[in-house]
């Protein structure tokens, strides 16, 4: 969060002030990258770059406060994911086996990895094993730090649906982690 200075920072950045833009970037880039590590891990870095290109292009037209700016950035990010999935699907239907279908990059046993070493990367890989909608809802809440209503708007779902998705996601994580713990103990 940038806080009370946000309006001034945003205004300066939209005029081309690099230092101000750098503050926006530093605040959101890690979150954006982590979102992609869950939603499109094979292309996380590329999609993060694309997202910032989109932000740069639209910056001077954006109006809103800091939470809505953050939601806007993640709206762009989500469009990148959707486009990427479409392209990935097209690659498959074009029968070009070069890259193969998109795969969720996850360690062999993310749960074990997460328990041994709670690195951010392992935690995200674990979240990425959830069904896609659940994973996306959880990561937008937890990592992007967005409220239910904003996540719902970004995902094109109702707030109640987002609550159900995150609830199921948390539960499933608890099941996976609990089963893993028992396996480790026995």
């Amino acid at each position: 969060m940038i806080g009370p200075e946000f309006p001034a920072v945003l205004q300066a950045a939209s005029r081309g002030d690099e230092a101000a833009f750098g503050r926006l970037w530093h605040d959101l880039q890690p979150r954006v990258l982590r979102y992609f590590m869950v939603a499109a891990p094979a292309a996380a870095e590329d999609l993060a770059s694309e997202t910032w290109l989109g932000v740069v292009r639209g910056l001077d037209r954006f109006r809103g406060n800091e939470p809505s700016f953050r939601a806007w950035v993640f709206t762009i990010a989500r469009h990148e994911v959707l486009d990427w999935r479409r392209r990935a699907a097209r690659r498959v239907t074009e029968d070009l086996p070069v890259n193969g279908p998109p795969e969720r990059a996850a360690p062999d046993d993310p749960a074990a990895a997460a328990l041994d070493d709670l690195s951010t990367r392992a935690a995200l890989a674990m979240v990425a094993t959830l069904p896609p909608d659940q994973a996306e809802a959880v990561v937008l809440r937890v990592v992007a730090g967005l409220g239910v209503d904003r996540v719902a708007a970004i995902m094109g779902k109702r707030p109640g649906t987002v609550r159900v998705l995150t609830h199921r996601g948390l539960r499933r994580l608890a099941e996976r982690l609990g089963a893993d713990r028992l396996r480790g103990v026995v």
Partner: peptide, 19 residues
């Protein structure tokens, strides 16, 4: 908590390109 941990240095590359 690990998923939302403070950023690591390797997550802050690419600023030059964005700038």
């Amino acid at each position: 908590a690990a998923a939302a941990a403070p950023p690591a240095p390797e997550e802050l590359t690419g600023e030059a390109a964005a700038r």
